[in-house]
C-alpha cells in the first residue's frame, strides 16, 4: 500500500493508505478530522471542500495519494491558536449563515478562497456565482452571501468596493 507524507493544518502527517483512498477518507477516517463532510457522490455539493496548497478542492474527488507533499488546510485548521475564529468563521456566525452546520465547513473553506482570489472586490452576483460548487439546503444562501461580503473587508483590511452598476 502506498505511503504518503503531507502537511495537514500545519502539522506533518504520514500514513499508509490504499491507492483508492480519497483525500476526504484520509482526513475523516485516518486523521479523525471529521469537520470535513461528505454530502454527495457526484462532486456537486462541496461539503468536502478543503484547501490543498491554497486552492479549494473537493476532497471527495481527489485521491489521498495525489496529496503527497501537499499542504492541506481543513476547517479544524482555521481556528487561531488562541481559539479565536477566522474572519470568515466569525462573519458566518455574525450573519447567521449556517443552520444545520453540515455544509458549513466546506462553505467556509470555499468562501475563503473566493475572497482571497478577488482582492479587487466582490459583487453580490460574483459571490452567488462563486458558490456554484457548494450546496446549502437550510439557509437559502441569503445570509451566506451577506457573511462573505462582510468577511471581505476583514480579510483584505479595506472597505469592499461598491461595484459600479
Amino acid at each position: 500500500m502506498p505511503q504518503i507524507s503531507l502537511t495537514v493544518n500545519g502539522k506533518p502527517v504520514s500514513a499508509t493508505v490504499e491507492a483508492r483512498t480519497l483525500l476526504v477518507e484520509l482526513l475523516r477516517d485516518k486523521l479523525h478530522l471529521t469537520g470535513t463532510h461528505v454530502g454527495c457522490d457526484t462532486s456537486q455539493c462541496g461539503a468536502c471542500t478543503v484547501q490543498v496548497d491554497g486552492m479549494s478542492v473537493k476532497s471527495c474527488t481527489m485521491l489521498a495519494v495525489q496529496a503527497e507533499g501537499a499542504s492541506v488546510l481543513t476547517i479544524e485548521g482555521l481556528v487561531n491558536a488562541d481559539g479565536s475564529l477566522h474572519p470568515m468563521q466569525a462573519m458566518f456566525r455574525e450573519h447567521h449563515a449556517l443552520q444545520c452546520g453540515y455544509c458549513t465547513p466546506g462553505m467556509v473553506m470555499s468562501a475563503i478562497d473566493l475572497v482571497e482570489t478577488h482582492p479587487e472586490g466582490l459583487s453580490e452576483e460574483q459571490i452567488r456565482h462563486g458558490l456554484e460548487g457548494n450546496l446549502c439546503r437550510c439557509t437559502g444562501y441569503h445570509n451566506i452571501v451577506k457573511a462573505i461580503a462582510a468577511a471581505w473587508p476583514l480579510m483584505h483590511n479595506k472597505a469592499l468596493p461598491v461595484a459600479a452598476e
Binding site: 469537520g35 468563521q89 449556517l98
Partner: peptide, 9 residues
C-alpha cells in the same frame, strides 16, 4: 455555531 464553524460538530 462555534462547534459547527470549527469542525467540531
Amino acid at each position: 455555531d462555534l462547534r459547527f464553524l470549527s469542525g467540531r460538530g
